[in-house]
Simulated assay, not measured.
Amino acid sequence: MNKVFLILVLVGVPLSVIGSLMHWSNVILFIIYCVTIIALASFMGRATESLAIVAGPSIGGLLNATFGNAVELIISIFALKAGLVGVVLASLTGSVLGNLLLVAGLSFFVGGIKYKRQSFNVYDARHNSGLLMFGVIVAFVIPEIFSKTMSETRTLSFSVGISIILITLYLAALFFKLVTHRGVYQSEKEKSHHHNDEVAEWGKGKAIAVLALATLAVAYISENLVHTFQAVGETFGWSELFIGVVIVAIVGNAAEHASAILMAYKNKMDIAVEIAVGSTLQVAMFVAPLLVLISLMFPTAMPLVFTLPELISMVTAALLMIIISNDGETNWFEGATLLAAYLIMGIGFYLL
């Protein structure tokens, strides 16, 4: 599999450059860009995994989520620059739905076929539930409701205020988990075989170099990818909303999708859940507010106001995930339930 990705990167990156210089058809370019980004993301995934083994599981999960979201953050910044606010909000929605329903669903399903029951840290699950309620429900629903009676300028100021609070709380949550309460909520089993039964694939230096190069390549290709959206949408009859919610979200999160499912298959549910839920929290409490602040530098600023279908889908996904994960155990049927919810929403966005 790794060889396939290596070939895709070695072929895809030059093709992306040549294709954009020679103005190939947008649909062909769109496919080349998407495949290349997914291949590059797999290298980012392997590099973060190597760093994670050196740094330990909590920081490892955080690194995975951060670099998993880096691709999406980069695509979104270029989309904002191009004035595609709708696509960016839709891709944030897609990322929340993708992580909570598709990634977690596939992880629980694949892991559950191999093992009858899988368990993960119940304290983490409860801690994350509170943050999910806050990040998705409080931070996204409130601006939507208040904006109904506000002028555009005020809505934007309100969004900026909320963004600063969200980022602050997100950093506090990390400080809580990695510094003040580190290890407080670990079970004895986790503490005892805490360290390394695993060997990192790459050394620290190589992993950092691969990460840096892959991130640069992703940034270059993402900028070009954004310019193909309109033509591709017209060709296939996809709405801006569908491109954002399904396509950008899946391409932007492909690497972490794969690593979460792999972890579940290896029965490392703590990491799989950390990637799926940790990533969602990072999108809701860090990536989305950061994009609101970044958008102030561009001609079209982005308020934190989603459409009603986006909002209701995210709230439903968050509640479903909280109810399913709160007992700290999963099985294949719970995975199937999450996947079914994702399909229902996907069809909805396609037909909108």
Rank of each mutant, 00 (worst) to 15 (best):
T180V: 09
I208E: 05
I344W: 01
L101T: 08
V277R: 03
V27G: 09
V287M: 09
L304C: 05
D270P: 04
I167G: 09
S95K: 00
S91R: 04
L62C: 01
T155Y: 10
V110F: 12
L106H: 02
L352R: 10
S325Q: 06
G233K: 07
A217N: 04
L8S: 12
R117G: 00
G130I: 12
L156K: 09
T337I: 15
H127W: 09
E72T: 06
V138P: 05
P289W: 07
T228G: 10
M263F: 13
L338E: 08
M263H: 06
L8E: 11
T93Y: 01
L290S: 13
E198V: 09
Q186K: 14
N128L: 01
V184R: 12
I250F: 13
K81V: 05
F5T: 07
C34S: 15
R117D: 01
L100C: 08
I75H: 02
I137W: 06
P143C: 11
A219F: 04
S58D: 14
L169Y: 12
G61K: 00
A212P: 00
L166A: 14
V136Q: 04
I38Q: 01
L97C: 06
K148C: 11
N128S: 12
K204R: 13
L308S: 10
L290V: 11
T316N: 07
F140C: 13
M314E: 05
L351M: 14
A104R: 01
N121S: 03
I31C: 10
A52Y: 02
L21E: 11
A209F: 15
S295W: 06
L62T: 07
A318W: 02
V96I: 14
M345A: 08
V88M: 08
G45E: 08
H23N: 14
L21W: 12
A52S: 13
I250A: 08
H257A: 02
G86F: 04
I247K: 06
L320M: 13
Q230R: 11
Q282F: 01
D270I: 03
I275L: 07
I243Y: 05
I294M: 08
I53Q: 11
I275Y: 00
L92P: 03
I7K: 00
G348P: 04
F5S: 12
N331F: 03
V218L: 07
I261P: 04
L51R: 07
L100R: 03
Y115P: 03
Y185K: 06
G183A: 09
G12M: 07
E334V: 00
S147W: 05
I323L: 15
N26P: 15
S163A: 15
I275P: 02
V88L: 08
K114S: 10
V287H: 04
G98N: 10
I38A: 09
L97H: 05
L51S: 06
V54L: 15
K81Y: 10
G68Q: 00
Q230W: 03
W24S: 10
E310D: 13
V35A: 13
G61P: 01
V179P: 00
I145N: 03
I113C: 11
D197W: 04
